[in-house]
């Protein structure tokens, strides 16, 4: 029983890092990234390939998040008109292209066979029996560091400019703020986190293949962020936990009541879709909206 609790705790930790990154892009910078899974995959494959080639795990994690961050910045190129809709469409397409590259460039990625035997960090130094707990602790330590770093960033001058850009694009433009480069930086920072989460995912499961990175993952991450609340980074963890528990609840429910697996699989996603729509309509800022004064612009001091 401890094993499965640790397993879900670790998974929630990994997705929390990704959700914080996505929430930063969406909630703080006002950018739509419908291709989250692509950046997640980049982080996973970069770190997986490097460590399989002999690099230490820490270098893999670092490289995984850096490459994902860089690609995030690159998607800005075709969408210089700053149109949020074009960003969204481009990210969907990019995630698809990334998946196709993973699938087709066998010489690099082993295609559909996936990467086998990705090393787990800590396994060498932690005594047997405590390894899963140690990995879980590592994930959560990284999650907390990411959260604190982003909070610092949000309350910095850069964070205030970001918010200005989000709220009043035209106003920020007319004030002479370099809106485009600010958005690119915000995308890159979010991408770093999503890539790091992907890298951790690879090292935790030790096997990844393109089948891990289907478009559904993107939608599930969006549901996590929407439930947590737009712009409220800390609450993302609640969204992640709620969605993870919900998606797995039917596994345990079906042992009690007989349920048709096909119907259940569809209904699970119907509920996730309904939830996203209901939040947009009734609670546009999520169940735990960002506290306005915490991010107040101008000279109002942040804090209470």
């Amino acid at each position: 029983m401890t094993d499965i609790v640790l397993y879900f705790a670790t998974m929630i930790g990994i997705y929390t890092i990704a959700a914080i990154g996505l929430n930063f892009q969406y909630g703080i910078a006002g950018l739509i990234n419908f291709g989250v899974v692509g950046f997640f995959a980049i982080g996973a494959y970069t770190s997986g390939l490097l460590t399989l080639a002999g690099a230490p795990v820490w270098a893999g994690l670092l490289a995984g998040s850096l490459v994902a961050g860089m690609v995030s910045a690159l998607i800005a190129l075709p969408t210089q008109r700053l149109n949020v809709h074009y960003w969204a469409i481009t990210t969907v397409g990019l995630a698809e292209v990334i998946r196709l590259i993973l699938l087709n460039e066998d010489w690099l990625t082993r295609g559909s066979f996936g990467l086998v035997g990705i090393p787990r960090p800590l396994d060498a130094i932690v005594p047997a029996g405590y390894q899963t707990a140690a990995f879980c602790a590592l994930v959560w330590a990284l999650a907390v560091i990411c959260y604190l770093a982003l909070r610092l960033l949000v309350s910095s001058p850069f964070g205030r400019v970001l918010k200005a850009v989000r709220e009043e694009n035209d106003l920020a433009l007319s004030l002479g703020k370099p809106v485009f480069s600010i958005k690119v930086r915000a995308l890159a920072i979010g991408g770093l986190l999503i890539g790091l989460a992907g890298a951790l995912y690879a090292h935790y499961l030790t096997f990844i293949s393109p089948a891990d990175f289907l478009p559904t993952v993107t939608i599930i991450m969006w549901a996590m962020v929407m439930i947590g609340g737009r712009g409220n980074l800390a609450a993302s963890v609640v969204g992640v936990a709620v969605v993870t528990v919900f998606l797995n609840s039917t596994r345990f429910l079906k042992d009690v009541i007989a349920l048709d697996p096909q119907m259940i699989a569809s209904l699970r996603m119907v509920v996730i879709g309904l939830l996203i729509m209901a939040i947009v309509v009734y609670r546009p800022d999520g169940l735990f909206p960002e506290r306005k004064k915490e991010f107040a612009d101008g000279d109002t001091p942040a804090g209470r």
Partner: peptide, 10 residues
Amino acid sequence: SPQAAMDGIR
């Protein structure tokens, strides 16, 4: 899906 498979095997 590999992720759901991992949930299941656990």
